[in-house]
């Protein structure tokens, strides 16, 4: 694993990819060597950096994508930075997804702003997996869905849901996921999204051996020092808090206590 660096990375492009969602492509060979599921901690004018997962890792070009939703002053500031300017990014941070197994059907589940990291996983390991690959993507509304076309460019089986039915099936990712799981008892699942969604993904996938979840949590340092971004996990001596930034953000579903 690459050690974290503080990098002044030039913005190659910045694009509004959905309502209130932006994707930046950053030129950085160092970051391009990261693992899907890892993240960068981006400096803003505020007291804390903002943790954002990689949406793409292009090692050949030495370029990465990060994609975020504007939720406050820090992410708004980020969305106003022009191409050609530099961002102060700390990364790559955390533990990413493990490489998928070649012979197991693979389901990538992304909810809202959790879609980008599972796309990075698809991009990195599509060629590794010889079994069928399925993506289940969910958003609240059609205009909030990101990266649908990126998935369709790579795989045929992309199932989309929206809370209001404005695109794809009405409902959440859990419906299509349960369907997939019933048909693929020996499958593997990589998911990222809101904590409530991941809790249900874990439940739907109980008994599936390879379920990996990328979590989000309010984060402080990003380096494992401040113990802010914890989740409850099964420890050797009972439940314990683990750090999303350092022990995660990717956890095996069976480690976590909901």
């Amino acid at each position: 694993m690459i050690r974290p660096l503080i990098i002044k990375a030039t913005i190659h492009s910045i694009t509004a990819v959905a309502t209130g969602h932006f994707e930046v492509r950053l030129d950085s060979r160092e970051l391009a060597a990261a693992i899907p599921g890892q993240f960068v901690h981006v400096r803003t004018p505020g007291t804390l950096r903002r943790p954002i997962s990689f949406s793409r890792l292009d090692r050949a070009q030495g370029r990465v994508g990060i994609l975020w939703q504007v939720v406050g002053a820090g992410t708004r500031w980020l969305s106003e930075q022009p191409a050609g300017s530099q961002l102060d990014v700390l990364g790559p941070l955390g533990h990413g997804f493990p490489a998928p197994q070649a012979d197991r059907p693979w389901c990538l589940v992304g909810g809202g702003v959790g879609i980008p990291p599972v796309f990075a996983a698809l991009e990195a390991w599509q060629d590794v997996v010889q079994a069928p690959i399925t993506a289940v993507l969910g958003a609240r509304r059609e205009d909030l869905l990101t990266m649908g076309d990126d998935f369709r460019d790579r795989i045929d089986d992309v199932r989309i849901t929206t809370d209001d039915g404005s695109r794809g099936g009405r409902g959440t990712v859990l419906g299509p996921l349960a369907h997939w799981r019933a048909q693929n008892p020996n499958g593997q699942v990589y998911a990222c999204g809101p904590t409530a969604m991941l809790a249900q993904v874990a439940q739907v996938c109980q008994g599936v051996e390879h379920v990996y979840l990328a979590l989000e949590q309010r984060m402080g340092c990003g380096m494992g020092a401040c113990l802010a971004c914890v989740v409850l996990a099964q420890g050797k001596h009972g439940p314990e808090w683990r750090r999303v930034c350092h022990d995660g953000p990717v956890f095996a579903a069976e480690e976590l206590i909901w």
Partner: peptide, 10 residues
């Protein structure tokens, strides 16, 4: 053990 999250708020 520490407190339940969220543990920080800007």
């Amino acid at each position: 053990p520490g407190n339940p999250p969220p543990r920080v708020w800007e």
